[in-house]
């Protein structure tokens, strides 16, 4: 069987837990996985991508409802890293957010674009009672 690490986290829908998500993702980049690149950079990118995705889910997907929950799964296999962020809301138009290029002095709109830039595949879809933002990065 291939070596695989799976993490499944559920947190209240509140931004005060973003730091916890960030620390978990940074630590995972330093786990004994097969990766020949710069692990500090991988840790930074994982922290950033999950922080941006979780913020979107908390603020847009779950509409800042503190009674909702946010679920995040992280799977690291030998060839890729798959992050999923689930929200319980009505969803949002990720294509519109991704295609509206932020101007240099815009105060918002960079989060989804950063995710697209740092990950190899990004999909947002309805899955049972949730929406899921699935992001994959190939480990080369």
């Amino acid at each position: 069987m291939q070596d695989q690490i799976s993490v499944d986290i559920t947190i209240p829908n509140q931004t005060k837990y973003l730091g916890l998500i960030g620390r978990i993702s940074e630590n995972l980049a330093h786990a004994p996985i097969r990766f020949s690149g710069d692990r500090d950079e991988l840790a930074f990118h994982l922290n950033l991508v999950l922080t941006e995705a979780a913020t979107n889910a908390i603020c847009h997907g779950n509409e800042e409802d503190p009674h909702k929950q946010l679920r995040i799964t992280i799977v690291i296999s030998e060839s890729c890293l798959t992050l999923k962020v689930f929200d319980e809301g009505c969803g949002f138009d990720i294509a519109a957010m991704a295609n509206s290029e932020a101007k240099e002095t815009d105060e918002e709109g960079r989060g989804i674009q950063l995710i697209y830039r740092l990950m190899d595949n990004v999909h947002y879809r309805r899955q049972e009672q949730s929406n899921v933002l699935e992001m994959t990065k190939y480990l080369r």
């Binding site: 941006e52 105060e107 960079r110 950063l114």
Partner: peptide
């Protein structure tokens, strides 16, 4: 040590 797009947004707001 870490800033996300919301942190950048706050700085851009101050700059403007």
């Amino acid at each position: 040590r870490f800033v996300d797009s919301s942190g950048l947004g706050a700085l851009v707001s101050g700059f403007k």
